[in-house]
């Protein structure tokens, strides 16, 4: 159940969101056309009540699909990571996300790596402390080095910070040595945070916490 401050802040937030829409926004061109809904077949009042009931029922259904547990939201355009609980922003952290650059894969063909942070909804699949980076092939190719045959030569300690949260296909939320790049799109797809924010996200997140990335 919502507490009074939460309820009030929800009201204020809803008010702000509504107020944020330009009040004079409207179609400016003469060709703008509204549509005509199909004509009501039943008697007016009855039909309206039925429509209202349907609208309310659908609104409830949509509301039930919203995350009721806290979730992580990542804005790759502005490089921010938020922890949200319903409408409330629990944490707003500056992040670094995918650079969007490309790298040719060795060998013939036109295969490439594209260093984007994936978009959509994911779940926290793993929580690691003192993670080691197992360098993938592209990390060596990018630096013009040979790909090692010995797996141990791929392991690098201390570059991912104290914690890492895996969300599938080798993507992690982790720390960084390069804090000056926070707020920029510089990564190979992972999401970087500073040490303090990373600790808070790690403490907050559970296995299964949703991560929505756009």
């Amino acid at each position: 159940m919502a507490s009074v401050p939460t309820a009030l802040s929800s009201l204020i937030l809803i008010g702000l969101l509504v107020a944020d829409v330009p009040p004079n926004s409207q179609a400016l061109f003469p060709s703008s056309e509204p549509f005509t809904p199909s004509a009501p077949t039943k008697a007016g009042g009855h039909h309206l009540q039925s429509l209202q009931a349907q609208y309310k029922s659908l609104s409830e259904q949509l509301s039930r699909l919203k995350p009721h547990q806290p979730y992580i939201l990542v804005d790759t355009a502005r490089n921010h990571l938020y922890v949200k609980r319903r409408q409330e922003v629990v944490l707003d952290a500056i992040a670094s996300t995918g650079s969007g650059t490309i790298l040719d894969k060795p060998g013939e063909g036109n295969d490439q790596w594209v260093f984007d942070t994936p978009r959509g909804e994911f779940l926290v699949q793993s929580k690691l402390t003192h993670p080691a980076w197992v360098k993938p092939d592209w990390a060596f190719i990018e630096e013009g080095q040979e790909i090692p045959t010995n797996q141990a030569d791929r392991v690098e300690q201390g570059v991912l910070g104290e914690y890492a949260l895996g969300f599938g296909k080798g993507y992690f939320i982790h720390g960084t040595l390069y804090t000056r790049f926070l707020g920029k799109n510089v990564t190979h797809g992972c999401i970087r945070l500073n040490d303090g924010d990373l600790k808070r996200v790690y403490t907050f997140a559970r296995i299964g916490t949703p991560i929505i990335i756009f």
Partner: peptide, 18 residues
């Protein structure tokens, strides 16, 4: 949007439609 939640909003200054 995602899961019915607004993630970001873009105000439209003007629009027309056919």
């Amino acid at each position: 949007k995602g899961r019915g939640v607004e993630l970001h909003r873009v105000p439209i200054v003007a629009w027309s439609a056919k």
